[in-house]
């Protein structure tokens, strides 16, 4: 008898502790309601922006990626590393061997002096990865008011919202709204930070870098801030997911194959089972369809039910 009752005891015990927690929570909420934060109200979701690589048929626009590379090389690289990308990878976005070699040689990569064994630098080779702007994270923080500029190789995969988030941050700088300061007078953006409603805490350490005119595009594309931000975001989609072109092409082939295989398999299955004469849906008396029929039949037969 005791063992039989044990299950009810355990069940009601858990329920009791949970409801106790619930009422404690409600009491706490009533006594000290949570203080609203400025970001609850003023944080914005990423802007709606589209890239050539979006969607199942999306492919990179190499000219845009090359423009994005230019923005990275002339602006972002001052603070941000791109550790996971090698110069050789640039062949994927439309450069040939000679161009990659020439591009790599413009960069200084860390090395060891073969004569003295001391740290030194040398010209980059195609097999090198993009060098970091700082020797280490401590140096990076020291140069940036104690904020660490993140590595950009994976940034699109590593942020909620992906490329749209990157684009929104780059173009989202504005003055702190008067409504915010009115409601939260203590939430004024601190000196070394910058107001950006697309950033989770609203105040970001990175200053606005793209105002328009930072780079001059060789192909004559207008160098507005919006265009530069879009191009570099597209480039960072590529650095994060260089597989997109191959992945989408393979995906379509696989999907077509599997769709075809399922249809053929389904037809074979049907032919086989037709011989086994299984024709009735087997869902029991609680199937709504059966219930409707039963009700109708009951009414017709004059039976209550």
């Amino acid at each position: 008898m005791f063992v039989r009752g044990l299950k009810y005891l355990i069940g009601l015990g858990f329920a009791f502790v949970l409801l106790l927690a619930l009422f404690t929570g409600i009491a706490g909420y009533v006594k000290n309601p949570p203080v609203p934060l400025p970001q609850d109200e003023f944080h914005l979701p990423p802007k709606d922006v589209h890239f050539a690589s979006d969607g199942p048929f999306g492919k990179f626009d190499n000219r845009q990626l090359q423009r994005g590379l230019q923005v990275y090389s002339e602006v972002c690289k001052a603070c941000h590393s791109l550790n996971l990308v090698a110069f050789n990878d640039l062949k994927q976005i439309g450069y040939d061997d000679a161009e990659v070699k020439a591009f790599a040689s413009q960069w200084q990569v860390p090395d060891i002096n073969p004569d003295t064994g001391e740290a030194s630098t040398r010209k980059g080779l195609p097999a090198d990865h993009f060098p970091s702007p700082f020797a280490n994270d401590v140096a990076a923080r020291a140069a940036n008011n104690n904020a660490l500029p993140p590595d950009l190789s994976d940034i699109v995969k590593a942020r909620e919202g992906g490329a749209a988030y990157v684009y929104s941050i780059l173009t989202g700088y504005q003055n702190q709204p008067a409504a915010l300061l009115q409601k939260f007078p203590t939430a004024k953006t601190p000196p070394n930070l910058h107001y950006n409603p697309y950033f989770a805490s609203l105040n970001i350490a990175m200053p606005q870098m793209l105002h328009g005119g930072e780079v001059t595009y060789a192909d004559g594309t207008p160098n507005t801030a919006d265009q530069e931000a879009k191009d570099v975001a597209a480039f960072l989609v590529w650095t994060s997911q260089p597989d997109i072109n191959r992945r989408h092409a393979a995906g379509i082939a696989v999907a077509v194959f599997l769709a075809f295989a399922s249809i053929l398999g389904f037809l074979a299955y049907h032919q086989l089972w037709d011989e086994a004469k299984r024709s009735v849906r087997l869902t029991g008396p609680l199937d709504p369809e059966n219930q409707v029929k039963r009700k109708r039949a009951s009414r017709k037969a004059g039976v209550k039910g």
Binding site: V280, P285, K293, R294, S298, V303, G305
Partner: peptide, 16 residues
């Protein structure tokens, strides 16, 4: 039986 006559029975008038 349920395969061959199931639907008939399951949609039969109640308490018949």
């Amino acid at each position: 039986e349920s395969v061959l006559h199931g639907e008939k029975q399951e949609s039969a008038p109640a308490r018949s």
